[in-house]
Every structure is written in C-alpha cells, then in structure tokens.
C-alpha cells in the first residue's frame, strides 16, 4: 500500500499529560509521527496539536479513530485534502567566512528568510515556509556547512471558515 503523509489538527483539553497520552498512543500502536507541534489557541483551556503522520490508508484511519478515542481530544480533523496554509519555522546556524557571507545573504534574500544573528564564523538564519521551502534552503546551505538546525514542525490551518 502507498504511504502518504497526512496533516491532522487535534483540539485538545489543556490538561497535564495530554501530550503524553497522544505520544504514548502513537508509540504503542506503532504509528510514525513526522512532526507534532503544540500550542495555545484562541480558546482558554484548549490547545492545538498539528500532527504530521505517515502511513497507508488503513494505518491513517486507525490513527484517526484511535486519536478520536482519547477523551482529552475534543476535535480531530484530517485536513490533508483541504485547502490549507501550512508553515514551519526553522533556525539554521551556518558556517560563514567573510568570503561566503555575501553568497549566503543572497540565498537568504531569495528565500525571504532573515539573518538573526551574526558571529565571526557563523550566522543564524530564520526561515518560515512550507516543508519544501525549508528543505530547499537547507540543501542550498548545506555546502557552507550547517552547524545546527531547529525546526518547529508543521503548523496548519484551513483556508476560509471550515475546520
């Protein structure tokens, strides 16, 4: 069966242990999480998890159903097929010398990223975008030598009024 990447949004009760419940479920049932991002929402007491998961159709259906069974999961939507805006934030620390710095800056400009810290031998680049964009930037910067990278995992929202 074909493996597909799915993006799910779970609105969950903002209680201790909720992340543990969700993570434990993925581990126990053998589901693969590509990324998970958690934060507050506009509603008090409700957190939002954006979960990116890989699997065949049957696995994804089980992921959906099992997540729905978690009492603290208030609402679960698989938004893979919807029209969505999805973003990820990455901080990339790249080795730089006086010779390479301008070339790096050019690449950063093209990607509409930002340099947020400069040190004698490295710069930190902040970039937001979808996963592909971040991957492409990463690949271009690779030759300069990447010292460190931190990615937030995907955040996603459907366009218009439907969740």
């Amino acid at each position: 069966m074909t493996q597909d990447q799915h993006t799910m949004v779970a609105l969950v009760a903002d209680r201790p242990g909720v992340l543990n419940r969700v993570a434990s479920l993925f581990r126990r049932r053998g589901f693969n999480i590509d990324s998970i991002a958690v934060g507050h929402t506009e509603q008090k007491g409700v957190s939002r998890m954006t979960i990116v998961v890989n699997g065949d159709e049957a696995t994804i259906e089980q992921v959906r159903k099992q997540l729905d069974k978690v009492i603290d999961v208030i609402k679960l939507s698989d938004i893979t097929e919807s029209s969505i805006v999805d973003r990820e934030l990455a901080l990339i620390k790249v080795r730089s010398t006086p010779e390479t710095r301008s070339e790096i800056m050019q690449i950063v400009d093209i990607f509409r990223a930002k340099i947020v810290d400069v040190a004698p031998d490295s710069v930190i680049i902040e970039v937001t975008g979808d996963t592909d964009k971040i991957d492409s930037l990463f690949n271009l910067l690779h030759n300069f030598g990447i010292k460190e990278m931190a990615r937030s995992g995907r955040l996603a929202m459907t366009r218009g009024s439907n969740l």
């Binding site: 419940r21 434990s24 479920l25």
Partner: peptide
C-alpha cells in the same frame, strides 16, 4: 501510576 496505566485504561 497514572503514567503506568495510561495505555491500559480508558482514561
């Protein structure tokens, strides 16, 4: 015990 029983309870 809530950690231990997390995967073996309904809640």
């Amino acid at each position: 015990i809530t950690g231990i029983t997390l995967p073996i309870t309904k809640h």
